[in-house]
Design a protein around this nucleic acid. Structure first.
Lengths: 122, 122
DNA sequence: CAGTATCCGACAAGATACTG
DNA sequence: CAGTATCTTGTCGGATACTG
């Protein structure tokens, strides 16, 4: 049993999911990994997210210490989001994960093609 | 843009999340990584999941080709779940991810303690 | 531009009952 | 034991309107 920020977790995977789980967090981290982005730029990279969800997820990532928020005090407002060192330390792992997903998808598609071929009349 | 099983994905992260995203999938994979488990054993390792969700998630993982299901034809029924080679290939990455989460949580807790110390009267 | 606030619907997930 | 089926509940997340 692991205790973190007054929450209990059964295993380290549960804890990790609390940090980067959910529909959007890892995608946001992934995009911020390439470069620092303004709110509106980030929104563009995630066409399907709503403004509300983007704000909400960014706040949570900020609270976790994975993303930092820099506010330019000007009109119109400008806010930039970037990865903290902790956020950056996660990037290589996410990269490996993506590569795995891509490889796996490709291997399936190739298998499918083989099946199509072998399903021709014997 | 990536096409996989007739779905479109904007980036590889989206695709990967389709395979192992959600509240339970990576946890299930994680536990099956240690050893093959029967349905009821798996249920025990995930106290908070309902029978319905466990069945549902297992079917999806099976459809993705990450988990395989072996049925002993006997009464009472016995069904064992294990990782496919593809599922196993994901394990090292999940392991790294968990380790990262644990390290990060620890570093935070340590930082917190430091803050408590330094917050004593100067 | 970068947000809040409010309302609302869809779907994820829970509870319960039943079965091969 | 390992599921289905059905019904209900709750949360996530969308749409819209408004603001410093």
């Amino acid at each position: 049993m692991i205790t973190f920020k007054n929450n209990q977790y059964q295993c380290s995977m549960e804890l990790t999911l609390e940090l980067i789980g959910g529909k959007w967090k890892s995608l946001i981290l992934w995009h911020l990994g390439e470069k620092t982005l303004r709110f509106s730029e980030l929104k563009k990279t995630l066409p399907k997210i709503t403004q509300k969800m983007l704000t909400q997820q960014l706040r949570e990532l900020e609270a976790s210490g994975l993303v930092s928020r820099f506010i330019y005090t000007q009109i119109p407002p400008k806010v930039e989001y970037s990865l903290t060192p902790a956020g950056k330390s996660l990037l290589p792992i996410l990269e490996t994960l993506c590569q795995w997903g891509l490889n796996y998808a490709n291997s399936i598609e190739i298998t499918d093609k083989k099946n199509i071929c072998s399903s021709s009349p014997v």
